[in-house]
Design a protein around this nucleic acid. Structure first.
Length: 264
DNA sequence: ATGCCTCAGCTCCTGAGA
């Protein structure tokens, strides 16, 4: 089973990139080929503008929680989608940040975690509240029978190895102790960082700033993550970032991250 | 140097992103 996450920074602008990644043209190889589930973030469009038919045409059903201008999340699947959940149950949120569903017996949660802007700001406080609510919900999900995959744009670097300039960016947004403690709290539920468990020493990024030639100079962060429950970690085959779409014309600032798990 | 880039929108500037 293959699953992936991708912050597309406007689905309207990036639709062709997503379609080509999942269903490449004849003779072209793509890490997105044969993807079972893909979650998307930062759609930046309302539900009535979601391109349901374009995905249906390449064999994917979709569920989504859209929002005009900001945020917005979707889950695409080649298999039947059950038990759809939108946003964190019991957490009142005006922003569209979570889409979850059960696919092939796996509880998939796709998330666009808050940015937080700056430590100490009101947006940072919201990020902390949101992360605590997510953790409480995931604690419940991890106790249930279905294995869990929590993936998306976390807007958190776990360790300094996830940061191109850990000294210059120390304690700045995405790199604070408070954010990293919330990431660790998710790991303490029994979830495993799929990429890091396979590549313990690799300095690989999933996001590069548009400004200052960030991608060209590999000035990036690893902030897009795939956490999998223990039952799945024993069947983990592969996990990687695919930088290919970041090299296209008008790319998203994020690259997709994918995972492959052995079928049971 | 509150910039360097990109996107949406009550669009020719502003807010937000990370």
């Amino acid at each position: 089973m293959k699953l992936a996450t991708w912050n597309v920074n406007s689905l309207r602008v990036r639709l062709e990139h997503v379609l080509d990644w999942l269903a490449p043209k004849e003779g072209v190889q793509s890490a997105g080929q044969d993807m079972d589930v893909l979650v998307l973030q930062e759609l930046k469009l309302s539900d009535d503008q979601f391109p349901t038919q374009a995905f249906k045409d390449i064999g994917y059903e979709s569920v989504f929680l859209g929002q005009k201008t900001y945020n917005g999340v979707a889950l695409l699947s080649r298999h039947p989608i059950k038990g759809v959940v939108k946003n964190i149950p019991g957490f009142d949120d005006e922003m569209a940040r979570i889409i979850s569903a059960e696919v092939l017996g796996v509880r998939v949660v796709g998330g666009y975690f808050p940015n937080g802007q700056e430590p100490g700001s009101e947006k940072f406080a919201y990020k902390m509240r949101w992360l605590e609510a997510l953790e409480a919900w995931l604690a419940q999900l991890c106790k249930e029978s279905a294995p869990v995959v929590l993936m998306g744009d976390y807007n958190i670097t776990h360790i300094d190895l996830d940061v191109w300039d850990p000294v210059g960016l120390a304690d700045t947004i995405h790199c604070t102790k408070e954010e990293r403690a919330r990431f660790e709290a998710l790991l303490n539920l029994g979830l495993v960082d799929a990429f890091r468990s396979l590549h313990p020493d690799q300095k690989t990024f999933s996001w590069w700033d548009y400004r200052g030639g960030g991608f060209r100079r590999n000035h990036g962060l690893r902030i897009d993550h795939i956490l999998i429950s223990q039952a799945l970690s024993s069947k983990l085959l592969n996990c990687d970032v695919d930088p290919t779409p970041r090299k296209l014309e008008r790319p998203s600032d994020h690259a997709p991250v994918w995972v492959e798990i052995k079928n049971s």
